[in-house]
């Protein structure tokens, strides 16, 4: 590259120089993003807030209903249950996916034989849409024609979608199957960024592989874990497509998580007012959770973990 014509290099330099002259990026740089954010996040949010005080079936014009939707929501046991279910599925998701993706990520960061090929195969679920994955698993878990019919010792009568525990288990499993590769990717990158000096020093001190993993790798991955967990929490709270296709909130309302309940109220019962109220509750809860996570993790004043090296 550097052997090419002199003038081009000249020009590039001049461009860079004039860019540097702008000093701090002004508001103009943020304008496109701000505009999109206003248009696609803030405006709909305001509309939803307004709708939550109306009765609207999506056909005629909305009727002002005062606090009716909110009063109904407070006494709605399905709504309260759905919040717990959302939290449960999120927590289970984090608990299942974190250890798996750390182990896989650390493994994938190494230099073993066939590692690249195996990793590539393992990342495939990440490329599929959640809908396709859910349809696939729904078919695979059919009690009469799917895997359960061939493995009765494990699945019994195969009524996976007929009990709350097994239905939640399926949701968590499919979620993990889909998203673990993504978090593995994050951990792989982070592991590779750990300075090799640390391991060399540990080896001299006589630390084995397991000791190295717990004393160097894990502490060095701390900030990555927080990033990954925040993504898992956000993903868990907004789980929707897997529920829609795999369980439809059933049996009964046993897997009706908040995001699905919102959809059900708005687009199946055509009560857009009630649906909007649920949506607002979700927004508020998600905001509170992310504030807590940021505070607790120190994400806002996070320091580099390679400090002092």
């Amino acid at each position: 590259m550097t052997t090419s014509a002199e003038p081009r290099v000249e020009r590039r330099r001049s461009v860079r120089r004039s860019g540097a002259a702008v000093a701090r990026p002004g508001f103009a740089w943020a304008a496109p993003a701000t505009l999109f954010f206003l248009l696609f996040a803030v405006v709909p949010l305001i509309l939803v807030a307004v709708l939550s005080f109306t009765n609207w079936d999506g056909l005629s014009s909305p009727q002002y209903a005062g606090l009716d939707n909110w009063k109904a929501l407070i006494h709605d046991h399905v709504m309260i249950q759905s919040l717990w279910l959302s939290v449960l599925i999120t927590v289970l998701g984090v608990v299942v996916q974190t250890p798996l993706s750390i182990l896989l990520g650390v493994w994938a960061a190494g230099k073993q034989r066939n590692r690249a090929i195996l990793s590539a195969i393992y990342f495939i679920p990440l490329l599929l849409s959640a809908t396709a994955i859910s349809i696939l698993w729904r078919a695979l878990l059919d009690p009469n024609f799917g895997v359960p019919s061939q493995a009765k010792w494990l699945f019994g009568d195969g009524n996976l979608f007929g009990h709350q525990t097994s239905a939640i288990g399926v949701l968590v499993f499919v979620g993990a199957w889909q998203y673990t590769p993504f978090h593995t990717l994050i951990y792989q990158g982070a592991t590779r960024a750990i300075p090799p000096v640390l391991y060399q020093a540990a080896e001299i001190d006589g630390a084995g592989t397991i000791r190295q993993f717990f004393s160097i790798t894990l502490p060095q991955l701390r900030t990555t874990m927080i990033t990954s967990m925040i993504l898992m929490v956000v993903g868990g709270l907004t789980t929707f497509d897997t529920v829609l296709i795999l369980t439809q909130g059933g049996p009964g309302t046993d897997t009706t998580i908040s995001a699905y309940y919102m959809y059900e109220q708005a687009f199946k019962s055509f009560d857009f007012g009630g649906g909007s109220a649920i949506a607002l509750v979700l927004v508020i809860i998600a905001t509170i959770i992310s504030l807590i996570v940021v505070k607790v993790s120190g994400y806002d004043k996070m320091r580099s973990s390679t400090e002092g090296l």
Binding site: L141, D142, P143, F145, N159, G162
Partner: peptide
């Protein structure tokens, strides 16, 4: 039976049960 809640008509599950003499 016991697992009817995991079976659907719309994805052909129950239809196949009858057709295949199950």
């Amino acid at each position: 039976g016991t697992n009817y809640d995991s079976v659907k008509y719309t994805d052909g599950g129950s239809v196949a049960l009858v057709a295949q003499s199950k």
